[in-house]
């Protein structure tokens, strides 16, 4: 949808860039997310310190940390705009789709920043390591895309509500259930060292989930944004 003399992609990137610049200056979301991840990680390390949980449990724990850390920060992209009053300026400044993809990219960047820090800590503190790094990479890549893709529109919905933080987790959980189940299965395989046949089905489902959720959010976003 090009218009004026700036193309659509540059507009999307301008939104993402604006959020990244603001984030670096204020550290509004990243601090909350990282601290949350660290706290959860520490609690889990203490809890499992006395015994050694199976690889299956490790895979689930890893995604519990990421899920809750993500829940503490991903809603900020819209809550911040709504609370500071900049949402109205943004609504008048650009098309809903530009805003949606800009925010989606920012949330993705946030999630990848989170993973880069959590993965080494998880490996060191819980003394475990994926047997198959490639599968682990698949899980993180598709998992993060799904997490951001499905929850960006939920964040926009929640930003209009009178209670925000708790509601975001409540609304996101049923939406993310299929993603979490599939991604934990792939991660299990990564920790146990399986062959690709084991993860083919959850991989298919995960790719389909990511694509469908992003398209669905894109189609529904204007209804939420134009409020």
């Amino acid at each position: 949808m090009p218009s004026g003399n700036v193309n659509w992609v540059s507009k999307v990137l301008a939104v993402t860039e604006k959020d990244i610049v603001s984030e670096f200056r204020t550290r509004y979301a990243i601090n909350a997310i990282l601290m949350f991840a660290l706290v959860t990680l520490t609690v889990i390390s203490f809890a499992v310190g006395a015994f050694s949980p199976t690889k299956e449990v490790m895979a689930a724990l890893f995604w519990i940390i990421l899920f809750f850390a993500a829940m503490s920060g991903l809603a900020q992209v819209f809550i911040k705009e709504e609370e500071s009053g900049t949402a109205l300026a943004l609504k008048l400044a650009s098309d809903g789709t530009v805003i949606f993809f800009g925010k989606l990219l920012f949330n993705l960047a946030l999630l990848f920043a989170l993973t880069v820090i959590v993965v080494p800590l998880f490996i060191i503190l819980l003394k475990t390591e994926p047997a198959n790094w490639l599968f682990f990479l698949y899980a993180i890549l598709l998992g993060n895309i799904g997490l951001a893709g499905a929850t960006t529109i939920i964040a926009a919905i929640v930003s209009k509500a009178t209670i925000k933080g708790a509601l975001f987790t409540v609304l996101s959980f049923p939406v993310l259930m299929p993603l979490l189940i599939a991604v934990i299965e792939i991660t299990k395989s990564a920790f146990l060292g399986g062959v690709f046949k084991d993860i083919a089905a959850p991989m298919q489902l995960l790719v389909a989930y990511d694509v469908v959720m992003i398209i669905l959010s894109y189609l529904l976003f204007d209804f939420v944004w134009r409020q």
């Binding site: 700036v6 507009k11 301008a14 939104v15 603001s22 500071s84 109205l88 300026a89 805003i99």
Partner: peptide, 20 residues
């Protein structure tokens, strides 16, 4: 309607023009 406190005045102007 408010503008971005974490950006400068010029950055605000440039951002809003660009996304438009």
């Amino acid at each position: 309607l408010s503008l971005y406190g974490s950006l400068t005045g010029k950055e605000n102007l440039r951002f809003f023009a660009k996304v438009n």
